[in-house]
Design a protein around this nucleic acid. Structure first.
Lengths: 200, 200
DNA sequence: TGTACATCAGTGAACGCGCGTTCACTGATGTAC
DNA sequence: TGTACATCAGTGAACGCGCGTTCACTGATGTAC
């Protein structure tokens, strides 16, 4: 039962979306090709009509999820969404760096390169939206972003929601304190899906 | 060839050390029981004289590595060691939260509880060594720690050592900027092995 | 202190299962005329 | 425009391999007397 090219493209999108969510939610190693195909409403055999192997899926799913950005306008708005209990809970829809950073960093070359390139681009873009001198802008960009990633990680490691909330709030205040007064202008390009689950 | 109790205890220590290093270096899922036993100079069959299953090893190795602390005296000294290219490279001897946080956070209950409890304890201990009012101390403790964890993650994701170095330096400066002037007193209890590889 | 025996730490083969991947098959799609 | 045929997207069984775990075995350790 051959499918049309349009249907194939649509199915490929379903596979990438399912992979992007499942990988972030459960980790790359723990998600099987069959899991992804099932979430995309297909059986596992057809997978290889779309990708050479699992590693190619990982690479493309990462590139896909790291490439699709449309972001809140200010660093403050971004931090508010990022450092929220909703983002803490929505791992599968949340920040890819926080969900998969360590695993990708020690993994295969191609996915690692995608993530590495994205880190550089994000820092550049983020810094560009900040005021001040080059060095200080990059420092604030890096410092703010690192704080957010570390804080969401800590908040997810902490099982107690009260402690998790304190961590997120403290990080939010810490970011404000670290910036020269009167910031929060310009949009930024950092990683965050639209709040709340959006797919499988 | 039965071993003495002393020899058994010694072997158990070898297993825990090997596991602590291998898990951080390659991730828990990617390290097999046979890998750990081989690194401890034994064959895999004897493993179950020490642990009921792999999950128990994970739990105990985490408890072990998260419990053994003797730390630099000041937050500045700690951040200097933490935000270094040496720590970036020494994943297997480095911060457990940065290496395994996401994987443990989404994994089995017992290891997760160990890590969760440690997060709370570290924040408490860290805040205790800082000056100022309670709220501010905890904010600085959480903010500094989150910055460090996020920064080492970003530095490891970035393949380019120059960019990695910039990230670490910027985070270091960001931490100084975020603190009320004239800090850096008291020791702190955060996660970092003695610099440089120490075992298998 | 010596002797006889039970225990049990570690070995290495084996088992069962789940995973990534392959393959024969199907029938709708697309193309050549 | 219609017809004949080749293509190929997706199916589901099967394969090979590696993993966690089990097990019979070994012989040194520890214990009872």
């Amino acid at each position: 039962m051959r499918n049309s090219q349009a249907k194939k493209d649509e199915n490929r999108r379903l596979i990438l979306d399912a992979a992007g969510h499942l990988f972030r939610e459960r980790g790359i190693d723990s998600v099987t090709v069959a899991d992804v195909m099932k979430a995309a409403s297909m059986t596992h055999g057809g997978f290889y009509r779309h990708f050479a192997d699992k590693n190619e899926l990982v690479t493309q799913a990462l590139a896909d999820v790291l490439g699709n950005r449309e972001e809140p306008a200010t660093i403050g708005a971004f931090a508010d969404a990022y450092l929220s209990m909703e983002h803490r809970a929505a791992v599968g829809d949340g920040c890819t760096f926080a969900a998969l950073g360590p695993e990708v960093a020690r993994g295969a070359d191609e996915p690692r390169r995608v993530m590495s390139d994205t880190v550089r681009r994000r820092i550049d873009n983020f810094a560009r939206t900040l005021p001040g001198a080059e060095t200080e802008r990059r420092q604030v960009a890096i410092g703010s972003w690192a704080t957010m990633i570390g804080a969401i990680l800590l908040a997810r490691m902490a099982e107690d929601p009260v402690l998790a909330g304190e961590i997120l709030d403290a990080a939010r205040a810490w970011i404000d304190a670290g910036q020269p007064a009167g910031q929060n202008a310009g949009d930024n390009p950092m990683q965050l899906q639209p709040a709340g689950p959006t797919s499988p």
